[in-house]
Every structure is written in C-alpha cells, then in structure tokens.
Design a protein around this nucleic acid. Sequence first.
DNA 1: ATTGAAATATTGCATAC
DNA 2: GTATGCAATATTTCAAT
Lengths: 149, 149
Amino acid sequence: MNPLDQRIVSCLVANARSSYAEVGKVVGLSAPAVKRRVDRLLDRGVLRGFTAVVDPEALGWGTEAFVEVHCRGNVSPSRIRARVEPLPEVVAAYTVTGAADAIVHLRAADIHQLETALERLRGLDIVDRTVSTVVLSRLLDRPPAAGGG
Amino acid sequence: MNPLDQRIVSCLVANARSSYAEVGKVVGLSAPAVKRRVDRLLDRGVLRGFTAVVDPEALGWGTEAFVEVHCRGNVSPSRIRARVEPLPEVVAAYTVTGAADAIVHLRAADIHQLETALERLRGLDIVDRTVSTVVLSRLLDRPPAAGGG
DNA sequence: ATTGAAATATTGCATAC
DNA sequence: GTATGCAATATTTCAAT
C-alpha cells in the first residue's frame, strides 16, 4: 500500500465508475497499470468492492436511529452479529466500550417501521434492554479520506 | 421511482462497476434503457454517485468512535455542521433526540489520533462537553436495501 | 508501456405506449 | 410526451507482447 495505491483508491472512492484511463491520468499511470493495481487491491481486500451511493430519503429510508444494546450476561460479538444480521433495518453494528454491549445503526422508512424494527431487536433472546437515539437530521455523511493520517 | 428503478439501484449498490448490459439482463431491459434510467436517477439525486468500499483497517483508519456532542445553549444544526465538517476524522454527524445535541462518527488511525480528534472536537466553541463511545469491533457494515419497506 | 481484439458505453433514430 | 430497442460509433477493457 504505497502512495500511488492510495491515490488510486481516492479516485475510485470519489467515483467508482471512472475508467482506468481516467484514474491513470490523475495518478500518472497507463490504464493497464492502474487495472493491475486495482486487481491487486481487490485481492488483498483493501478494496472490498464498489457500490452506488443512494439518497436514503429518495428510497423511502428517511428515518434512522442509533440503538445501544445491553445484553443479558456475557454474549460474544459473533453471536450478537448473528442475531442482528437478519434484520433488514440494521445498517451497521459495533461492539463498544462503555455500559452498552453494542451499538446498532437502524434505518427505516418512517417512525412506525423504526418502531417495528426496534421491537424485533428488543425481542432477540440476547437482548436485555435498549436505549434508542433517533436521528433528526443527517448533518454530514462522507466517505473516509483515503490518504489517511 | 418505480420497482424497475429500485432493482437497477439494487444492482448498482451490489456492484457499482457492473456494465449496463449486466444490469439490463437482471432487470429485463436493454443496456441503453438502463443507462438512461441511471442518468435520470443521478439527475434527480436518487443516486448520488458511485464509490469504492474500502477496508478502513487496510488504509490505517482502524479506530473509530461515536461521540455525543452537548452544545452550549441553542446551536443550529447548520452551525454544528459547519464546525465539525473541517475535521477530517469526522465520517458522519447527526442531530438527534435525547440529551445530546448531535452524534459525531469519528474514524482515526489509532487511539492517539482519535484522542487528538476528540480534543479538537471538544475545543470547538459550540461544544460544552462530549461523551465518547469507542468501537471495539465492527460487527456489520452494509449498504441499505434498495427495495425498502 | 504499447498494441490490438473483444467488450462496453453512448448516441441517433424508429417505434410503441 | 415518455420509454424502449436496435444499430452505429466511440471508448474502454484486457491479455498479449
């Protein structure tokens, strides 16, 4: 992972559909050279793939929340993952420091669907209680810089 | 935004670099027809763009945290946005219900950089105090389903 | 890095709803 | 007017050197 790779990754984060030639023009490489590096980055898992960035509002997923999950007793991270993964409203989940065992990021069409998702989340056998924080507005949402640090 | 568009969006969320012909084969449309719909979705802002999914670890952004931000007095969302936007470690920010005024999602190279970012965040004139929750492990991180609800 | 064949993107145009 | 498919051209990919 050298500076050249980082710049290639930056280009693709900015626009995943740009051609290898376009990326090459920016980083000073020929198109085939860029492709070989991209393939290598995909192989090594640095690049996980390419995705479309969708406006959640437009799709009818305008309501989101962060939920602290407190579990009964000791529950392993992998078990938490296995239980929350099937819920389609779960966008992300993390184990965290502090009183909670996990933070679950939910995204739903509206408050009602959010409530339903929350009920299903609270119904999981591993869950003791939850503390929800509903998002009022998304102030910022951006891909991480690729040239980190 | 009809079911056809939703399926096209799904395809591109799954793989932003798939060809229009590939998408067309899935949704039952010709390549030009797919392109025209994609262009229209981009125009309308339903599709914001296409990005590479990067492994934060591999880029040296392995440490992240969620920070509750409590402001002094009444601060408008746009003002919060303006203050946190310049910090490169800020991946996302939301105004929320509950005691906190905002939740800021931070991503840094390590605990030290996270601490530095936190100090800068707490140094903002609008910030009264912060409550940090450090992520121990990312259990799940996926794009939202496109056929929502 | 360059070449050349195959795949893909993009535009114009005719057609159907 | 809106959306589609087909065909033609331009561009890009990808394996060869």
